[in-house]
Design a protein around this nucleic acid. Structure first.
Length: 494
RNA sequence: GGCGACGUGGCCAAGUGGUAAGGCAGAGGCCUGCAAAGCCUUUACCCCCAGUUCGAAUCUGGGCGUCGCCUCCA
């Protein structure tokens, strides 16, 4: 399968370091607030990539950090009058909760920066020993960019050109404006850890490099994140690792496109963001997932609630299709399996599976993969419409299973039919309207359907409608199909 | 200024040489007692100009426009 490597700007064949195994690391959030849906888009994209690699048979080892010590956390904690650790705990819990709601698989390993200080101190010490880093009297430690020959290779930047645009900081002990902090000396009251350079805390770029190496080794197969992390974060991570371990940090760098609102990048600094929590409070996870998967992961994605509404409709349609296929399979005579229609649909099922895999094999083209599933749904509907009550049972079930299974590879799980637990109030409705004297719901349903069928046969529309209205009032749907009347739950999310 | 990405129907979006997937929305029709669901039909000079080619949305050059990174940011 082909994967786009943002370091080489080319699609490359995926060749794992260890055959059959994939190690992945995706930079996690700094936990100082609720994450927004732009963050969510990246984590969702890599969730689908991970799910697909598992689907392909790889043993995937997936690590994602939590940055739980950082300037922003300290600042926010001071504003709120809580400890930095407390604030970080609150929002790392919130992050994990929202990821679960979005149906993102939990990482195999979720290191927290504050629990990995020893690995970072060790890495920094080695870098100093090797001459790639230096401590200054204040207690800060900087990485010497000029000492790293490969610096710039991840982001395609030239060190001399960077210098032109580099910000000149005041009161800095840096030897070169391009150098970046590996260790920051603690100011009074800040969270800090012991180190050979005094009390302090690690720099952001250092955390990821050390955690990647500790949990996955180097090089790893895939290192991912949002495209805004390419520089400086990933460049700096890579520089530390390649100097320290004399190997690339990662063989493949994957970066997701930015999520936009009204054509502009959504970010906390611009203030034009929606939190994931806010969106998941209003829409089911699958609608959010479908919206994001309709665009390729590398392209910018314009977010809007209107589009989310559209996705709700599309999901309902898929659910209805699956429900119709299964209903027909159970209630038709299933006699026409040899016909042209059944043969054609059978071919379409295979084509959809193949199209799905081909699309995903080509740099995780979820948009094209979804199109294959929607196309199958459309063809199955057309077949059902044409074949009616003699539609081939086994082909209907195969089509339904294919739709459900392929969507589940993408983590869209709400299309799988649920066991319909109809409400007990149906017993009362049946008792009132048609004189049902039993106590179980199934009997009530059967009695209601029979009574409605009789009323319709007698053209007693008022009675037929009264039954339908009473059942509808319970939030159920009454439908007259070619294979008979059915009563089901209203569609619309989970 | 440097580096990079992009510009496809009303909206979203796939498609890297052979005359345009899919979703949402719209219009008309069919089916239905009425519905629901579904089906059918229908809308694209692929930003502009020039070039390469038998042939380009797809390659090359130029133009216009949009966005991202270069500073914390998924």
């Amino acid at each position: 399968m082909l994967v786009y490597n943002s370091q080489t700007h080319r699609k490359e064949e995926l060749v794992p370091v260890e055959p059959g195994h994939i190690s992945m690391y995706v930079c996690g959030p700094t936990v100082y607030d609720q994450i927004h849906i732009g963050n969510g888009r990246t984590f969702l994209a890599f969730d689908v990539i991970r799910r697909y690699l598992i689907f392909k048979g790889y043993q995937v080892r997936f690590a994602q950090n939590l940055t739980d010590v950082d300037d922003k956390i300290i600042q926010r904690a001071n504003e709120q009058g809580v400890s930095a650790a407390e604030l970080a705990r609150t929002y790392s819990d919130a992050f994990i909760e929202q990821m679960e709601r979005l149906n993102v698989l939990a990482p195999d390993i979720r290191p927290r920066a504050t629990q990995e200080i020893d690995a970072m101190v060790s890495m920094i010490s080695s870098l100093i020993d090797q001459g790639n880093a230096y401590a200054v009297p204040s207690g800060d430690v900087y990485f010497s960019v000029r000492s790293c020959e490969t610096y710039g290779s991840v982001s395609g930047r030239n060190v001399d050109e960077l210098l032109v645009g580099a910000r000149i900081e005041e009161n800095s002990d840096k030897r070169d404006p391009l150098d970046f902090a590996l260790w920051k000396a603690a100011k009074p009251g800040e969270p800090s850890w012991e180190s050979p350079w005094g009390l302090g805390r690690p720099g952001w770029h250092t955390e990821c490099a050390a955690m990647v190496h500790r949990y996955l080794g180097t090089p790893i197969d895939i290192h991912g994140g949002g495209s805004d992390l390419v520089f400086p974060h990933h460049e700096n991570e890579s520089a530390q690792a390649s100097c320290r371990w004399h190997e690339p940090l990662a063989n493949l760098w994957m970066h997701t496109g930015m999520l936009r609102v009204d054509g502009e990048k959504m970010s906390k600094s611009l203030g034009n963001f929606h939190t994931l929590k806010e969106v998941l409070d209003r829409y089911p996870a699958d609608a959010v997932r479908l919206l994001m998967l309709q665009t390729h992961y590398r392209s910018p994605l314009d977010f809007s609630f209107e589009r989310l509404d559209g996705c709700m409709g599309a999901l309902d349609r898929l659910r209805t299709t699956v429900r119709n296929l299964r209903w027909a399979a159970e209630n038709s005579d299933g006699s026409s399996c040899g016909g042209d229609g059944a043969q054609a649909l059978s071919g379409a099922i295979d084509a959809a599976r193949e199209g799905f895999v081909a699309a995903m094999d080509d740099d995780f083209n979820t948009s094209a993969a979804l199109a294959a599933v929607f196309s199958l749904a459309g063809q199955a509907n057309a077949y059902l419409d044409a074949a009616g009550a003699s539609a081939c049972t086994s082909t209907l079930l195969r089509a339904s299973d294919a739709i459900v299974e392929l969507l589940e590879v993408l983590g869209l799980e709400s299309v799988r039919p649920q066991v319909d637990q109809l409400p007990a109030e149906l017993v009362d409705v049946a008792a009132d309207l048609v004189g049902y004297d039993g106590s179980d719901v199934d009997g009530a349903v059967t009695t209601l359907i029979e009574a409605r069928a009789q009323a319709r046969a007698e053209k007693d529309w008022a009675r037929a409608d009264a039954i339908r209205d009473a059942v509808s009032a319970l939030g159920l749907v009454v439908e007259d199909t070619q294979a008979g009347t059915r009563i089901t739950r209203q569609e619309g999310g989970r």
